[in-house]
Structure formats: structure tokens, C-alpha cells
Design a protein around this nucleic acid. Structure first.
Lengths: 198, 198
DNA sequence: AATTGAGTATGATTTCAATCATATCTTACC
DNA sequence: GGTAAGATATGATTGAAATCATACTCAATT
């Protein structure tokens, strides 16, 4: 799912630059826009009352985000924070609807994206409910490998820190470090100079 | 999201009766149908290697299920099992696509359903990652109350067993029982004769 | 080459849900 | 009213991840 930038611009979308660490939108606030990442990296997170983050999705260029309120009218389900300096493009909700209406094939693409995200949630949820750190991590890495996300396609290097893995699985860094170390001993992955290859 | 049964039949859909406990489809198998529940109750679950179930969603009449493979072409993400004797109606994938194409407003309804399901996953996932049984249960009950699911609209009685709550949160029955008991003491819910009202 | 900071590593201890075991309640049915 | 089955209740114990504390490694920067 990626809407052509020229198309978005033609329909009146606007660019916006955000600095690393900047909050793009906050969980619980109302929304009126379709967001798409042009360059940089954005994490879509929930922050609990102790300040601990849970990363719902890491958004890479050409992916959209913040799409739930566009259809159910509810507030944002999570906050979007720029991981790096990024450029986003956004289009007003009503125009986005119009765009989908006039381009059924685009609507099908969008539906496909939603089902992929939903499938990812199904996958993670069943693992988290299992309370087995190794399974959770291994499922997450398997998903990244399969979808070519967050893994270098050339050298198979995992482009995430242990902390990010922890924030996506609800585990603690130490647990992730210890678990990945034991996975290395079993030959499930390689670690050289602290970098993970799988 | 509910497609009118007459419409489904007109497009060639077929009814199917399933007995309580019967498996409608299995996680990991290929799919070619849109499924909608006519009557009864269906749980959409993942079963781990120790036989423990994780309930992804409980489907009530007029809701669809098994929709992920329709758009991303992957196998079923979870198994559907009849909780009670049920009647389902199913329509072939290609015809379903055609139906959406010719009825854009229906496609928008369907997209809305997907976003609602995705939002529910966001909600549960962030709570499970928090590892706080009381928060998880309370979030789940709050969701049921708000969406009028699994709760009697007249008497506010929770129509789920402690085991089902456990299977939706990845907790154990005993933990759910103890946690709900303590929630009762705090006045967060009422329990009379083992029945929960909230 | 020295400094710095983010990330990784590892040991010791604590905590809380899981587990195990058993008892009691509730409802349906004969 | 008695019985059975499913669900709820509760105590005792265990275990694995969280927590706390501290140290080390790597790579970037000066």
C-alpha cells in the first residue's frame, strides 16, 4: 500500500517535516488526516502511565499510518513519533475517502494493507499470550525476515536494537538479550560484535 | 458490518450448519470463502502446541469471520470453532470481491469493520504487553461494555466464563478469578452467585 | 588516541502469575 | 430431592521474568 505522491499532491495533500523524537500525533486525540511516510522512520506506540513504550508498528517510507480513525471515527489508537528526521505527507480524511471511491483498485490495495496489519496483530498476540520469550522473539524475527522489514536484505542484519525488540514484545531488554544469546547458542541466529544476523 | 442474507444468497452464497465444538476451518489452511455467522456463536482461536487456546475474537450472529485470506492471499490466521450449534453462510472469494466492487458503500462498511478489529487488537496488545492482569481484564470488560458485546444489555451480566476471559488475555483461570474477586472488593464490578455484572 | 554515549552483557535478588491440589458452589436433569 | 458436571473458589508452592546493579563493548567524534 503506497499512494503515489504525485496523486496525493494532485488531490491537495501537504508535506510536513518532523525532527527525530517529534510527536506527529497523540493517542486519544481526534484525527482528520491520512498520513503517509515519505522518508525517515516513524514508530507507532502506546505509552503507559510509567512511561514505558509499546511499539505497535514501525513505519518505513511509503507506508501509511494513523489510518484507524479514518473509518471508525474514533480517536488515534496510538501515538506516532519520528524515530529519525522524517518527511510525511498528509491528506484530509474526506478527500481520502473521495480518492478511494473514485479508485476502487486503490481501495482494494488499502484493504489488503489493513488485513496484513491485522494478521500481524493476530500473530503477535497469540505469541504474547503464550508467555514464552523465545517464541515471541523468534516469531517476530521470522515475520521481519519474511516481509523484509527491519532486516538488511543483503547481509541479514537485524536493524533493531534489543530495546526495540523488547518494546514490541512487552519483554525487558535484559530478557531479550539473554534470550537472544541462548538462541545464538542453539544456532537459531548469529551475533557478532553485538549485531544480530538471522 | 453485515451483508444482507438475501443479497448473499442472490450472489450464490450457501448455508452450512455446524454442531457445537465443530471446527469450521483450521489455522494455516488455504481459504476461498467469505464467512458470515447467521445464528449461534463461533470462536476464532489459536491453539498452541500444549493445546491451550487463545481466543482472538468471539463472533456473534451477523458478523463475518475468516476474512484475512480474502485480501492478502495467505492461509487462515486462526481456527474457527463453533461454540454452540450454529448456522453459517459462505460466499466464494472471487464473487465476494465482485460484490464489493459493485457496491462501494459495502466496501466502505467492510473497511470499517477491519479498522474496528484492528483497533481492538491495538487495545488488547498494549495491555497484554503491560503484564498487569487487572488492567487487561478491565480493558477487555470496558471494550465489551462499550461495544455491547458479550454483556447482557438489560442486566449488565457478563456472558463469558472466567476461562474465556483467561483465553482472551493469556492469563490462567485462577488468576482471572482472583483478580476479578479483588476488583469486586474495590467496587469495580459486582459478583453474585458467581455471575459477574459490570 | 582519548572521550563519550548508546547499546549490550551478566550476576543477584525479588516478585507475582503459574501451577498444583482440593474444595465448594450453581445449575440442569433425572 | 439427589446426582452429576461445569464453573468458581482458595490455599500452598514453584518458577521464570522483572528488577536492580554494575560492567563491558562498539563506534562515532574530537
Amino acid at each position: 500500500m503506497k499512494i503515489d505522491i504525485d496523486t496525493l499532491l494532485a488531490w491537495g495533500a501537504a508535506y510536513k517535516k518532523v525532527a527525530a523524537g517529534e510527536i506527529i500525533f497523540r493517542e486519544g486525540t481526534e484525527s482528520s488526516f491520512y498520513y503517509q511516510l515519505v522518508s525517515g522512520k516513524v514508530r507507532w506506540v502506546n505509552i503507559n502511565n510509567e512511561g514505558k513504550e509499546f511499539i505497535q508498528i514501525i513505519i518505513e517510507p511509503d507506508e501509511c499510518f494513523g489510518e484507524l480513525p479514518l473509518f471508525d471515527g474514533e480517536p488515534f489508537a496510538a501515538s506516532a513519533i519520528a524515530d529519525e528526521d522524517s518527511v510525511i505527507i498528509r491528506l484530509h480524511k474526506s478527500i481520502f475517502h473521495q480518492l478511494l471511491k473514485e479508485n476502487p483498485e486503490l481501495h482494494f490495495e488499502f484493504t489488503k494493507l489493513l488485513t496484513q496489519r491485522l494478521r500481524f496483530k493476530f500473530l503477535i498476540l497469540k505469541e504474547l499470550a503464550n508467555h514464552n520469550p523465545e517464541n515471541s522473539i523468534s516469531t517476530l524475527l521470522g515475520y521481519f525476515k519474511q516481509t523484509q522489514k527491519n532486516i538488511c536484505t543483503k547481509c541479514n542484519r537485524l536493524k533493531l536494537t534489543r530495546q526495540q525488540i523488547a518494546d514490541m514484545t512487552g519483554l525487558r531488554v535484559e530478557t531479550v538479550i539473554r534470550t537472544m544469546k541462548s538462541m545464538q547458542l542453539k544456532g537459531d541466529l548469529q551475533i557478532t560484535k553485538g549485531k544480530v544476523y538471522c
